[in-house]
């Protein structure tokens, strides 16, 4: 769904994720500012093989909802995708939350490179503890926000996490979301070489180590039940995980004390505990 010769950096995870949009039938994308916009191209050229509507940040899910409803009225089949960065999700969060609760017929895809990369790496709410950005030059001292958990708390129609590190799993989730109706959210982990400061050939390794350490947990939530994805399942068990320090070491962006590394480990355990509760059907939740 994207032509070569686009403006993405070497080893860009977003470019890789954009290729996978070919899994979704009749796609139309609403896209706010970000690396994605730059990759999509400068007018009068476009790198995208699909229709893109460039929109103001906070409006993204609202525009997607409007497009989706409009196409329905016109009798046109379309899968409208709100394709956002993590920064766009910060800025458009209330529109996102409302869209999930209304069960708008859209697919919200967040390509999360854990900072505002296009403007030169400012911290977002997705930026993890200890990561150096231009607005956290000594390393961020606030933990990241877990958007997947928040969206689960909305009991959204379909919620999935994915990563460019396991591309078949990501493709399967895009494909599935494209066949469902209602609000569908896919949170894609997108390790960014220049932003996270690792060599461009390591994008896949970094992404996989995030899963292997538990820093990124892969799951799908549908019809009120959460299922952990096969590729990442074994890392739910602590004994199978690599130490978080090993993931952290793949990147030069981190400044973490031993206490903070221990805190990261603890938070991974806690988040997995919470996710496990969503494995039971909603009605039997006590």
């Amino acid at each position: 769904m994207i032509y070569p010769g686009n403006a993405s950096c070497q080893g860009c995870p977003i470019s890789l994720a954009m290729r996978c949009l070919d899994e979704i039938e009749n796609p139309v994308v609403a896209m706010p500012a970000g690396c994605s916009t730059v990759i999509a191209g400068l007018h009068p050229h476009s790198a995208m093989k699909l229709a893109v509507v460039h929109v103001p940040f906070a409006s993204t899910p609202a525009v997607a909802c409007g497009l989706s409803e409009g196409y329905k009225k016109l009798g046109i089949k379309a899968n409208v995708i709100a394709w956002m960065g993590d920064g766009a999700l910060d800025i458009g969060f209330s529109a996102f939350s409302a869209s999930a609760m209304r069960n708008d017929d859209i697919i919200a895809i967040v390509v999360d490179n854990e900072a505002y990369m296009n403007t030169g790496n400012q911290a977002s709410l997705s930026t993890p503890l200890g990561a150096k950005t231009t607005t956290s030059p000594m390393g961020k001292r606030i933990a990241r926000r877990n958007v997947g958990l928040i969206t689960l708390a909305h009991h959204a129609n379909y919620v999935a996490t994915a990563t460019v590190g396991y591309i078949q799993d990501l493709r399967a989730k895009f494909r599935k979301a494209g066949k469902l109706e209602g609000f569908r959210f896919i949170h894609v982990h997108a390790p960014c070489p220049p932003g996270w400061k690792f060599p461009s050939e390591k994008t896949i390794e970094v992404a996989r180590k995030a899963v292997m350490s538990g820093a990124w947990v892969l799951y799908e939530y549908e019809k009120g039940i959460l299922e952990f994805s096969a590729v990442g399942k074994k890392f739910l068990e602590k004994k199978n995980r690599i130490p978080i320090a090993e993931y952290v070491r793949t990147q030069s962006r981190f400044a973490l004390s031993d206490e903070e590394i221990a805190r990261l480990e603890r938070e991974i355990d806690e988040e997995i505990e919470i996710l496990l509760r969503f494995k039971k059907p909603r009605d039997s939740n006590s």
Binding site: Y3, P4, G5, N6, A7, Q10, G41, L42, H43, P44, H45, S46, A47, M48, K49, V52
Partner: peptide, 18 residues
Amino acid sequence: EPLISKAKMASAGKTGGW
């Protein structure tokens, strides 16, 4: 029509030069 960008290869040039 003039407002709609046209899809093409090499929207950012021949990136092999990078």
